[in-house]
Design a protein around this nucleic acid. Structure first.
Lengths: 132, 132
DNA sequence: GACAAATGATATTAATTTAGTATCATAAAG
DNA sequence: CTTTATGATACTAAATTAATATCATTTGTC
């Protein structure tokens, strides 16, 4: 799957926060709106906070705001955070080096497609995703 | 991952069979050549046989041959067999319908990329992959 | 300052998917 | 009729993904 659950949840949460008029959004509001299991959402928000996508404040009336404008948050940033480096093919023979890495036609074909996919993904910002 | 292990193994096995001068290739030869665990490879070959990608013969000197020419075997056929329908994004809220399926911007963007990927993949045949 | 309400950090468990094994049945060659 | 191959099928193990639980820390309010 190109986009996994974590990334998907993160996009939804960030979009909601971006669209919110209020200056802070709490986990409670997000849970109610997005129907994501609370502890799981909390984990995701904490990661987004650590990775400087969100700023958090504690205590009563605490919550989250975007750490930067929506057009500065890229989908690929989120994918990197939650899914690691984007790869469409992971050669088998995991740890070892693939015996025909250099000549493998399948790899070459997939690499080409991958290049296109990545360049498309790079153009997608949170702003676009959260437009009304 | 776009290409999973089963598909990858299948491609390797089919390529080897396609390139082989002999009219039949046995599991034993494939195991030696491809370093794939024997029972796992057997399972894959049996599936390919059932799906009419290979023809098998039993008994001593038994083995496998391609059921059709390499240019008639598409990578997407194999992906369909081992991975099901190709999808880059699987909306969360699995069983339920995504609440904003119609308007989801992320879905739209990914769908566009998916379209391109599929059309690229459709052009890839076993013949191309097994060329020397 | 005590308490409540929020997030931070982190460890653990559960579910699902992927990968791999084992075993017995069946067919064909010699 | 025995050996050597594949067919069918059920099972187990490993890895990944998803979700939970718990305690610590910060901050606003009475």
């Amino acid at each position: 799957m190109l986009i996994n659950r974590d990334t998907d949840y993160a996009v939804r949460a960030l979009c909601f926060i971006a669209q919110s008029k209020k200056n802070k959004v709490s986990v409670g509001e997000l849970v109610k709106e997005l129907k994501i299991p609370r502890p799981f959402l909390r984990k995701i928000l904490q990661i987004l906070n650590k990775k400087k996508m969100l700023k958090s404040s504690k205590g009563p009336h605490g919550g989250f705001i975007l750490a930067k404008p929506g057009n500065k948050i890229l989908l690929t940033d989120l994918m990197k955070i939650f899914q690691g480096v984007l790869k469409l093919n992971k050669c088998i023979f995991k740890k070892q080096v693939c015996p025909n890495m250099k000549t493998c036609k399948l790899k070459k074909k997939i690499d080409k497609i991958e290049k296109h996919v990545i360049s498309e993904l790079k153009g997608i910002t949170l702003e676009q995703l959260s437009e009304k």
